[in-house]
Design a protein around this nucleic acid. Structure first.
Lengths: 199, 199, 199, 199
DNA sequence: AATGAATGAGCGTTCATTCAT
DNA sequence: GATGAATGAACGCTCATTCAT
């Protein structure tokens, strides 16, 4: 569905994308009908299909946009950083901040995970995130900062902490992203246990 | 929908629960119709509504069963353990093992998370799990084994690691639960960084 | 869509087939909606899809039934006949009578011809009719009653005359099938021209 | 929808007519959307409705053009012919040649036959063709070349043979129009049976 | 306890047509 | 003359639920 759009057309399309993204995040994919979307915007049903080939396609586009946008933010955050552990940390902070700022897109990804149709996209996006993270872990291992082990397992663990804390504390309990990021980073770097005090 | 059931009735009911749980996990809630379920078992539609008031109710029951079952397993695993850090560890191991052994129930929980109707139940179950975990963390803090901080944040982080590693490594990549549990425990206890070697 | 049907179910199904066949014949395939059909019978929409997998499938079934029924009639009509020319004639008479008695099924075939989806079925049915007819022609040629030539072309010509006269004279102008059959047979056997009178 | 058209306008209009005629013939009336037509030509939707009041109107125009064109061809073919039987023959040959040369317009007529909206036009055109043919038959009867009978029935039979053989042999099996015309003429003039040889 | 049959609101999608620019 | 945008009724089809037997 590639169409030469006028300015007005582009505006309408963006309107649809934004509105639909919010509805999907709030009500889920199935419970958000195309009728809901167009009624919500006060336009005819044909408008939807003028801009999108299907409800599926729209959802995929929103999802892909969100994934792209988050990754771009992460990469900006670590661009000037040499130290792999600092890159890991900055990546986590960037993720938590972005996800906290776009809770509905975060919700969308959760949603997509459990919808066979979209699970592939999510998995692919996650693979990219894991690869990004694992790269830093490997570098840290190379310099001895991080002890040996499976860098992918570690990367997954970091992702698990980041996502879970963001959802539970930032999105659901409204805590401040920076504080949550501090906790997440501390947990990932040192774990639970007290460091044995060097005498 | 509480019915005095004959032995045969109970068997039928269990059959429905098991079959539906698998279908839900494989195809999702919406893509599994009541028709699918009864056809899959070769029975008439009336059977379904004889035992369950609605599709919703059945799903809730499956979900509640799964949550109960997992929690029971966790509590068995830590029953004989005094040390809070060991209890934390044993709880994680029990979870990973159980989730790895019942991947379809794990999938069901993911599913429920993103379905407004069931999200409440999932959240409630998660709250219980967090409280369970946080109790050990608090004890660890009391004894000084774990440095101060927000025990709930720590508990959420532990949950995030446990769930994410189980899904990514055990369910999706078929790694052995015990190995994954080792990695998860190590990550949670010590984090990423090498311990400064005491001279 | 094969279902174990009760007596009531079979009755309902037949009702749908009959009603739909008439509607299709009168209004065409596209102009007859599933809604029209179920409303016409005063039943809910689900009833239609309980008995048929799709509108397409129903149409195909009606078409196939009609083709089968006509052919059966033709074969009964020639069963006791040895002379190939008489078989040709009886076949034509049987067709004209049957088509005149079931004008709506005749219309359905015309309809299907120009609907890409069904054209294949019609063509296949026609091929059978041509083969049936050509067999008699070939026998007639073997015995010298019919001069040499392409038996298939002749068979097609016979079909063309039969169908066209039935539609134009019997269906559209209400002439008696027997009279039309006489004219059709005469035309096919002797053509237009007067036989040169043997002195 | 009568518009004073510039030269460019006339060209555009013809382009639409030609393109639409082919699409209709290939895909059918319903399966050819106005959108298909304008997209196929790379123009906007407005263009269509600038030249035609509706999709219906365009189809009717194409149909009328085809009917006119075929009839003109037939009349040219018999203009110089006095003998009614020869006129009959030449008319058939002209029809078969023209229909073979414009198979898509032939298809269009078949199409229109089974679409209530257009059936009237087709019937009217057929009535003209029958009248044309019947006139020759009547003259043949007057001169005794053709034995008495219903000239309309004969005319319909001739039409049936012509159309059916053209479709089955020329259009569908690619045989040469001249050969098919020979077969059609022979069949119509002499029928199937061998002439009794005059001793 | 269980069946086959029925309901009907709702879904995603299409498309002839109109309109503002 | 021509465009892209918009309309909205209608379509084929699904499905949770109910009902008569």
């Amino acid at each position: 569905m590639d169409r030469r759009l006028t300015r007005r057309g582009r505006a309408r399309r963006d309107q649809l994308v934004d509105f639909a993204a919010r509805r999907f995040a709030e009500n889920g994919y199935h419970s958000t009908s195309v009728t809901d979307i167009v009624n919500g915007l006060g336009v005819g049903k044909g408008v939807f299909y003028w801009y999108f080939a299907s409800k599926d396609e729209l959802f995929c586009e929103i999802l892909a946009d969100a994934q792209r946008s988050l990754r771009r933010r992460q990469q900006q955050a670590i661009a000037d950083e040499d130290d792999p552990v600092r890159r890991l940390e900055q990546g986590m902070r960037a993720s938590i901040t972005w996800l906290g700022a776009h809770p509905h897109l975060f919700a969308l990804v959760q949603l997509a995970t459990s919808e066979e149709r979209f699970a592939g996209m999510v998995r692919a996006g996650e693979d990219v995130a894991v690869a990004d993270t694992a790269r830093h872990v490997k570098e840290g291992m190379a310099t001895g900062r991080i002890p040996g082990g499976d860098p992918f397992a570690v990367a997954h663990a970091v992702l698990g902490v980041t996502n879970h804390l963001t959802r539970a504390l930032v999105v659901e309990r409204g805590e401040k992203p920076d504080d949550v990021a501090d906790a997440a980073v501390a947990f990932c770097l040192h774990g639970i246990l007290a460091r044995p005090t060097t005498p």
